[in-house]
Design a protein around this nucleic acid. Structure first.
Lengths: 175, 175
DNA sequence: TAGACGTAGA
DNA sequence: TCTACGTCTA
């Protein structure tokens, strides 16, 4: 693991092109596109604040895209039941959520990786594929009441112009 | 992921040599050496029973080796606290534990992968390395009371003769 | 649907 | 120590 412990990169990652595909989160980690193995939001400390560097819209959450994929609505993190807190709780503006807010304030680019559930060839098994969709910027965020009754953040990101067109756009309905 | 959903292999895996090293569990999965991402015991269904194919002695458990590494004592699985069962429970002779017992009865080979905690070069960070140690056979198993008061299985495996010597032997004290 | 010797980073 | 859009097989 040559890349262990590297600092998160803000913006483009050398050698990674829009449309590049990956099979496992560990691959995103190895090339520095998105370091955490499970966390959907990666960020880096800059001065006194934390700034989001990349997100993974992996599916299964209440995210969705519109307008040919240029706009992505992304749900915040946290509030999930755990061994300690057995019930959903309101998300807080901390960690990844805070880093996305700060990214909005500072107008810094956020790499977006989208997950796609594919049908495996032989068996009818579903497999995940990850695809790099390029740089976005956080435009706005607000709070909504999630399907479990707790308050969750909703971020709106817009894809930066001038990047290579994406292929046939994945349409996420309640991705 | 070309290897998704493959059936576990009993015995040698083509192309994998004793001493081969890996950085992530996902690599063991990809080459078919050990399929589960987290589970320490892999097994395959054979007729009416399940037979262990490989184990990962990753460290952190109460495993240890003796006699220049030819004998490995390996702890069973299960009984850990979860969200449902908040306290340790006695391990049961099922799943992986049962597959190891059946492997003993049928004298089938078990691949052993050992984990080694290494000191990362630059930072003082600990990283995990996995090393294929070859084929073993389950000789015996019994129950002991674990450090948390619950009953756990202890398996004794012996390395099959005639395999390439291992390098300087890792000595696990309470691995 | 749940359980499992995962991983990194805060 | 804990959280986190993991990922498999049974």
């Amino acid at each position: 693991c040559a890349n262990a412990g590297i600092e998160a990169i803000l913006g483009d990652v050398s050698g990674v092109k829009v449309g590049d595909k990956f099979n496992f989160r560990v691959e995103l980690h190895l090339i520095g596109l998105h370091r955490p193995f499970r966390n959907g939001i990666d960020f880096v400390r800059r001065g006194n604040t934390i700034i989001a560097t990349s997100i993974v819209a992996s599916g299964g959450y209440d995210d969705y895209t519109k307008e040919n994929g240029d706009v992505l609505y992304y749900s915040g993190q946290g509030g999930n039941p755990s061994a300690k807190t057995l019930f959903p709780e309101d998300q807080k503006l901390e960690r990844g959520n805070l880093s996305l807010k700060n990214s909005m304030d500072e107008k810094t680019p956020v790499r977006v990786i989208r997950g796609l559930k594919d049908m495996k060839d032989t068996k009818g098994k579903m497999v995940h594929t990850f695809s790099y969709h390029g740089l976005y910027k956080v435009e706005d965020f607000w709070q909504v009441r999630g399907p479990h009754g707790n308050v969750v953040f909703r971020f709106r990101l817009r894809r930066t112009q001038g990047q290579p067109r994406l292929g046939p756009c994945l349409t996420y309905h309640q991705l």
